[in-house]
Nucleic acid binder design. Structure first.
Length: 278
DNA sequence: ATGGCCTCAGTGTGAGGA
C-alpha cells in the first residue's frame, strides 16, 4: 500500500498534475492540503475517473483538506476534538473552526490530513493560534493512542515548522525574527512527536526539502524548507518499508510550491512479532 | 537544468501564504 501527502496549493489549478502523479506513482491514498475550495467546487470527476473516491473538507477559498483513495474511506472526521478556531481581530474560545484537519480510516489504519496554521509573524495573533493548534493536536494524539493502544495512526501534512536547522534553507527566514524556526514552534513539534508519533520519512530520506517559495529563484537555488511530514505511531512506523520526497514535482509548468511525499507500507509475512495491519 | 510569486474573489486590489 502506498500512501502520500501533498500540499497542492489549489486543487482546481493542480488537478491534472495531481491525478497524473497518483496514477503514475501507483498511490493508493493521498492526503491533500490547501485545496482552496468548497466540496462542490472540488474537481471530483478527474479523481473518480482514475478510480479514487474522495473525502473533502473545505469551507471557503482558504485552507481546505481532502483525501483521495482507491480503498474505502471510513469514519470521516472533520477537525479533531479541542481544535481551536480563528477569526482575525478576535481571540478566545468559540471562534470559527477552519478547514485544516480531516481524519479517515482505511482498513485498520487511522490517517489525518493536516494543515497547521502558518503563524504569519512572531507578534501576530496567528502565531498564538499556531501554538494552541499544536497543543490541541498533541493532546488529541496522546488521548487517541491511550484509548487505542497499538493503533496504526499517521498524521500527514504541512506542519509549517522546520524542526532542525538543516530543514531551513530559505535565507529570508532569520533566527529570532521569523516563524517556522522559533524555539516555541520547534518545541511544539517535538511535543507532538513525544505524544507517540515519529517521522517515518526522515530515517529513509535524511536530506531534502519539501517546499520552495515561488519567489527569488528559491527552487533553482535549492533554498527550500522541510516542513511537510508523515508522523506515525509505533505500529504504523514498523510497517513503513520505503519513503520518497518527489522533488521532480516542483519542476515544469504550474507546480505547487510543495512537493508530494510517498511511503510504502508492508509487512514481513514471516515476522509474527509485528501486528498484521493489512 | 528547475529561472526572478501565486491563488482566490471578483473586476481593483487585498488577503494569505511561508
Amino acid at each position: 500500500m502506498r500512501i502520500a501527502t501533498w500540499n497542492v496549493n489549489s486543487i482546481r489549478t493542480r488537478v491534472g498534475r495531481v491525478v497524473d502523479w497518483l496514477v503514475r506513482e501507483d498511490i493508493d491514498v493521498l492526503a491533500m492540503q490547501e485545496i482552496k475550495c468548497k466540496p462542490e467546487q472540488f474537481p471530483a470527476a478527474a479523481f473518480e475517473d482514475a478510480g479514487y473516491e474522495l473525502a473533502v473538507h473545505g469551507l471557503n477559498q482558504w485552507n481546505g483538506v481532502a483525501f483521495a483513495s482507491r480503498l474505502p474511506l471510513d469514519d470521516v472526521t472533520t477537525s479533531f476534538p479541542g481544535m481551536p478556531g480563528f477569526l482575525k481581530g478576535e481571540e478566545g474560545p468559540g471562534l470559527p473552526l477552519e478547514a485544516r484537519a480531516l481524519g479517515v480510516t482505511v482498513g485498520d489504519v487511522r490517517l489525518w490530513s493536516l494543515y497547521v496554521p502558518n503563524g504569519r509573524a512572531l507578534d501576530d495573533p496567528h502565531y498564538r493560534y499556531k501554538l494552541d493548534w499544536y497543543a490541541a493536536l498533541t493532546a488529541h494524539t496522546r488521548e487517541e493512542l491511550a484509548r487505542h493502544p497499538g493503533l496504526a495512526l499517521a498524521l500527514m501534512g504541512d506542519f509549517n515548522v522546520a524542526p532542525t536547522d538543516a530543514d531551513m534553507g530559505d535565507p529570508s527566514f532569520v533566527p529570532g525574527v521569523s516563524t517556522h524556526i522559533s524555539p516555541p514552534e520547534r518545541a511544539a513539534f517535538e511535543a507532538l512527536e513525544a505524544a507517540g508519533v515519529q517521522d517515518v520519512v526522515r530515517p529513509l530520506v535524511p536530506q531534502g526539502y519539501t517546499f520552495w517559495d515561488y519567489k527569488q529563484l528559491r527552487f533553482p537555488r535549492n533554498e527550500g524548507m522541510r516542513i511537510d511530514f508523515i508522523l506515525g505511531s509505533s505500529a504504523f512506523a514498523e510497517a513503513v518499508t520505503d519513503a520518497a520526497i518527489h522533488r521532480e514535482e516542483r519542476k515544469g509548468d504550474a507546480p505547487s510550491d510543495h512537493v508530494p511525499i510517498a511511503i510504502d507500507l508492508g509487512l514481513d509475512a514471516d515476522d509474527d512479532d509485528r501486528p498484521m495491519i493489512f
